[in-house]
Amino acid sequence: MKKLILLAIFALGTTVATNAQTISENALGLRFGGGNGYGAEVSYQRAVGGDNNRLEFDLGWRNDNSRYNSVKLAGLYQWVWNIDGGFNWYAGAGGGIGNISAKDDRYYNNKNYKYYDETFLFLAGNIGIEYNFDIPLLISLDFRPEIGFINDNDDLDNFSPDVALGLRYQF
């Protein structure tokens, strides 16, 4: 009976190991977000520490010359698990830094606005699903909630959920 159980565990482990898909060493592309996010972000992924762990860095910026300028850099550590074939799901955690320079319309007086310049830090989580095509293309859909802190302006949101579609070239 013990031999049968050990054989079953070995067979299951072998099956899981053969279905595991390794992620590409590098991926570069765009992450198209919405909501309180930064719209399109330049995104880079780098495999680290094993077959299914990676770092992701995203650089986003927004510019409305009449109202504000903003830039944000996010870094996340992600764990990737294979679902089937080219389908993977992943989860991660990280954080980032950003800056916003904006005009506050509440203080309009004879065309003189009050301006503020804020640097902020944030913590972020990440969960998503991706498909790794046979060609070097990776497409993903993810959810990233962010919690901001260390800013003096109460008008900046402390919680910012973001849903995004990612398209990346793998190399």
Rank of each mutant, 00 (worst) to 15 (best):
N63Q: 01
N63M: 06
D64A: 09
N65I: 13
N65M: 12
N65F: 06
N65Q: 04
S66R: 08
N69T: 08
N69M: 09
S70H: 00
S70P: 08
V71K: 03
K72Q: 05
K72E: 11
L73P: 12
A74M: 11
G75W: 00
G75Q: 04
L76R: 07
L76A: 09
L76N: 06
Y77A: 15
Y77I: 12
Y77M: 14
Y77T: 08
Q78E: 14
W79I: 15
W79R: 15
W79Y: 09
W79G: 14
W81T: 14
W81Y: 09
N82S: 15
N82H: 04
I83Y: 02
I83F: 07
D84W: 02
D84F: 06
D84H: 06
G86C: 04
F87L: 15
F87K: 11
F87R: 09
F87D: 06
N88H: 01
N88V: 10
W89T: 14
W89D: 07
Y90L: 07
A91N: 05
A93M: 13
G94D: 01
G94S: 04
G96N: 04
I97Q: 04
I97H: 04
I97D: 00
G98S: 06
G98Q: 05
N99F: 00
N99L: 10
N99M: 10
I100L: 07
I100W: 00
I100H: 00
S101C: 09
A102H: 05
A102F: 12
D104E: 05
D104N: 08
D104M: 03
D105I: 15
D105E: 06
R106W: 00
Y107A: 14
Y108V: 15
Y108Q: 07
N109G: 04
K111V: 15
Y113D: 05
K114T: 07
Y115I: 13
Y115C: 11
Y116C: 11
Y116M: 14
D117H: 06
E118N: 12
T119S: 13
T119F: 07
T119Y: 07
F120P: 15
L121T: 09
F122G: 08
A124T: 05
A124K: 08
G125P: 14
G125Y: 01
I127P: 00
G128N: 05
I129T: 05
E130W: 00
F133C: 10
F133H: 03
D134A: 09
D134E: 11
D134M: 10
I135N: 03
P136D: 12
P136V: 15
L137K: 02
L137D: 03
L138Q: 04
L138C: 07
L138W: 00
I139A: 14
S140M: 12
S140C: 13
S140F: 08
S140A: 15
L141C: 06
D142I: 08
D142F: 10
F143L: 13
F143K: 03
F143M: 09
R144E: 04
R144A: 12
P145V: 13
P145Y: 02
E146F: 03
G148A: 13
I150P: 00
I150F: 01
N151L: 08
N153V: 14
D154F: 01
D154W: 00
D155G: 12
D155L: 13
D155E: 03
